Computed example of a mutant assay.
Amino acid sequence: MPGRTPVSSNPTTSAPRVVVFGLGGTIAMTSSTGDAVSPTLSAQQLVDAVPGLAATGIDIEVVEFRRCPGASLTFADITELAAAAADALAGGATGVVVTQGTDTIEETAYLLDLLHHRPEPLVVTGAMRNPTLASADGPANILAAIHTATSPHARGQGCLVVLADEIHAARWVTKTHSTSAATFRSPDTGPLGYVLEDAVRMLNRVPHRLPVPVPNPARQTTVGLHTITFDDDPALLAAVGTRVDGLVVAGFGVGHVPESLVDTLTTLAERIPVVLASRTPAGPTLTHTYGFPGSEQDLIARGLIPAGWLHPYKARILLRALLHAEAKPQEIATAVAAAGGLADFTVWPWPAALDSNGHSERSTTNA
C-alpha cells in the first residue's frame, strides 16, 4: 500500500493543503555509479529538494504511489490513482499534484481528466532533465504545479499539466520534442495560463468538463492504434483488428486512408468501434468535405466514428475508458463526437462534472 508522509500538518491552520503523489519518472531518476539513470528518489525527496516551497506556507502531504518509468505505467495504475486523488480531495485537500515520467503524460493526464469528477485542481508534472544534470527542471516544475493546485483560478478545469511555468489542459496537451524542456504544447489552443512570480495567471478556460463513469475493474479491454502510412498493407490492419475490442485509426490529413484499406475498415467497424482521427500534429478530422473512396465522408458512412479535434492518443484513451465503463455503441459515438468538438457538450451521455463552485455544469448552463 502506498504510504503518506506529511511535510507539515497543523489541523488548526487554514493554510491550503496539497497532496503530492509520486509515480517515478525522469524527475526521480539518479545514478549511484555515474552511468544511466533510473527512478530511485522517493516522492518525499523530490518535495524536500524544492527551493522556496517551505516559504509558501502550503501544507504538503506526500504519497509514494509508484516508482517506475512513465513508459511502464498502466491503465490500472492511473485508475487507482484517480480514486486515491478523489479520496484526498474528499478529505479536505485543496488540490492534488502528480509527479511522473513525461513519456506518457499526455495520455495519463487525459485519463485522469476523464476520471476526475471533482472541481479541485488535479495537476500533473514531471521533468525533462534528471536531477544529476545541470539546470534540472524538476524542482521548478513541482513548485509551479503546487501553486497551480492551490489556485482558485484552476478550479473546475479538470486535470492540468504544468511544466516550464505553462499550464495546459490535459485534453489538448501533447509532447512535441524528445529532449527539450519546453516540449509540452497545446498546438490547437495554446496554454491555458502561466505561473508567474509564484502566482497563477489564467488566460483561457476549459469550456466544459466531460467525465466518464467509473471503470469496471473486472472489465478487460484492448484498444489498438493504427497509424496509416503511405501504401499501407491491409493485412497489417486486419491482423491488429482481430485482436482488439476497439481501434483508433490515425489517417492522413483530415481523415483519409488508401482505398485498399476501405473493405478491411468496413468489416472491422461492423464488429468493434473504430474511431477515425488524424495523424497530423494539429487540426481536426472533417466529416463531409471529401467524397472519394477512403475519404472521411466515405469512412463515416461505413461506420467509422470521427474524432474531430481529438488527437489519436487521446482518442485511444477515451475509447478504452468508455469500453471499461461498459458504454453502449451509441454512447461511444456520442461521447467521441462531444469530446472531439463535433457535437455540443450537452449531448454527453453521463452527468456533467462539478464546476468551480461545486455545481453541475449542465444544470448551470441550462438554467
Rank of each mutant, 00 (worst) to 15 (best):
L299H: 05
T221E: 01
L276Y: 03
A339T: 04
D59P: 03
R17I: 14
T125N: 04
I300L: 06
W348G: 06
R66C: 08
V254D: 12
P131D: 11
G341E: 06
I105V: 12
P213S: 05
I305D: 01
T179H: 01
F184P: 01
F345T: 13
G57Q: 04
T221C: 05
S360Q: 04
D113Y: 00
V20F: 14
T264G: 07
S260D: 10
L236T: 07
T365S: 13
T242I: 08
V20K: 11
Q157G: 07
A182F: 09
P16L: 14
D165E: 10
V347A: 14
P281D: 03
D231F: 03
G22I: 12
D87L: 04
D344Q: 06
T132E: 15
Q220C: 06
V223Q: 00
I105A: 05
S32W: 07
D113G: 03
S180F: 03
Q297S: 15
E61V: 13
C159K: 07
G101E: 03
R219K: 09
F345N: 08
I228E: 00
Q220G: 00
G294A: 10
H147E: 11
A55M: 08
R66A: 05
T285M: 01
T264L: 09
T108A: 10
S363A: 14
A321E: 04
L196A: 10
V161I: 09
N366R: 15
R66N: 12
V257H: 10
R129H: 15
R219H: 09
S180R: 02
A149V: 09
D232T: 01
T26V: 14
S14P: 02
I228P: 00
P349I: 13
A82M: 02
A333Q: 15
T99W: 03
L81T: 02
T280P: 00
T102I: 07
R201D: 06
A169V: 05
R201M: 13
L46E: 10
T148H: 06
G255Q: 07
K328A: 15
A269N: 13
A28L: 11
T26Y: 14
G341P: 01
G341Y: 00
T346Y: 04
V212C: 03
A182T: 05
R155E: 06
V124L: 11
V47P: 04
P139C: 11
D355G: 12
P213G: 02
A28E: 12
D188A: 11
T222P: 01
Q297Y: 09
Y290N: 11
L276N: 00
N141D: 08
N10K: 10
P139H: 10
A170Y: 04
F230Y: 06
E106I: 06
A282K: 08
E259C: 14
I78V: 12
P191M: 11
L196D: 07
H288P: 00
Y313F: 07
G291D: 12
I272A: 08
T346C: 08
H117K: 08
M29R: 14
L23M: 15
E106D: 04
E331A: 15
A164L: 07
P234N: 09
G255Y: 00
P187Q: 09
A269E: 11
L323P: 04
A352R: 08
C68D: 08
A325Y: 06
S32E: 14
D233Q: 08
V206R: 15
K175C: 02
P6F: 11
